[in-house]
Structure formats: structure tokens, C-alpha cells
Amino acid sequence: MNSELDDLYREVIIDHSRHPRHFHVMEDADATAEGFNPFCGDRVTVYLKKQDDRLADISFQGKGCAICMASASIMTQTVRGRRTDDALRLFDWFHNLLTVDQPSTQPPDEQAEPLAVLAGVRQFPIRVKCATLAWHALKTAMTRGGGVASTE
């Protein structure tokens, strides 16, 4: 079990949770969406700036557990500059990585590789929502232009 725990709380994850990247409010965002997990009270807001159908810039703000904060931080790194449909496909891959029985563990491209450090979350089903909260908010911001995303 303790190796599973070490897999979950890799140093990279603790580092991202303590020093999240792209962690600020974006005043001139084109779209924002909030993710809220009523189970634990975690809350993140995702800000997007779009150029054509690309995510020209992304940032987030919020409060949550280490898994939630690290996942949001890594997400901003891995989707920045992507086309929106590509970002949605990446969410699907990441969601499968954490939830399906035999996921494809190979990240689809080089920019997506940092996501693999979150694979340890699959051993802790109750924490999957923590890791996907920011992604749900991103999806809401991209597809609905904003609003509140819930993991429920």
C-alpha cells in the first residue's frame, strides 16, 4: 500500500500542488468556468483565452487538495496552445487513464506526458473526482463558454 501511496503523492505532484503553474485570475478571459466538488468543497475556476479554435492562454484559481491543485496545474501546461477538440480528446484519454480497466497508458503526444504522473490516482477511486475537477471546468468553459461544472 505504501508504494501505492508514494505513486499517488509523487514529488512532482506535491511540487505542483505547492507551486501551481498558471495560477492567477485572467481579467480578459474569453471564457471562465468553475468546477465544484460538493463532496469535499474543492473549488477551481478555469480561465481561457481563445484564438480561432485554439486555447491561446489558460489559467486557474481555487482551493483544493493536493491532487486537485496539481492536476489543474498540470492540465494548464498540457492543453495550452491546443485546439479545443484536441483538448477534449486529451481529457477523454486522461479520464480513461484513471477509470477504465485497461487504459492506454501511453500519452498521445509529448506535451501530454506530464499527465502520466497522475496515473497513481486510479488506485484511489474516491480521489478520481479530485483529479478531474479542473478538467470538467475546462470542458464547460470550452463547450458552453462558461458556467459551473460539478463532478456530481
Binding site: N2, Y9, C40, C65, I67, R127
Partner: peptide, 14 residues
């Protein structure tokens, strides 16, 4: 301090 209750819960469970 510096440990979210949810992370603490998982670490204790282990």
C-alpha cells in the same frame, strides 16, 4: 498546516 484534510484522509487510510 499545509496538508489538505482530503490528502490527510488518504495518507492515514494507507
Amino acid at each position: 498546516e499545509d496538508v489538505h484534510p482530503h490528502d490527510l484522509g488518504t495518507i492515514l487510510d494507507a
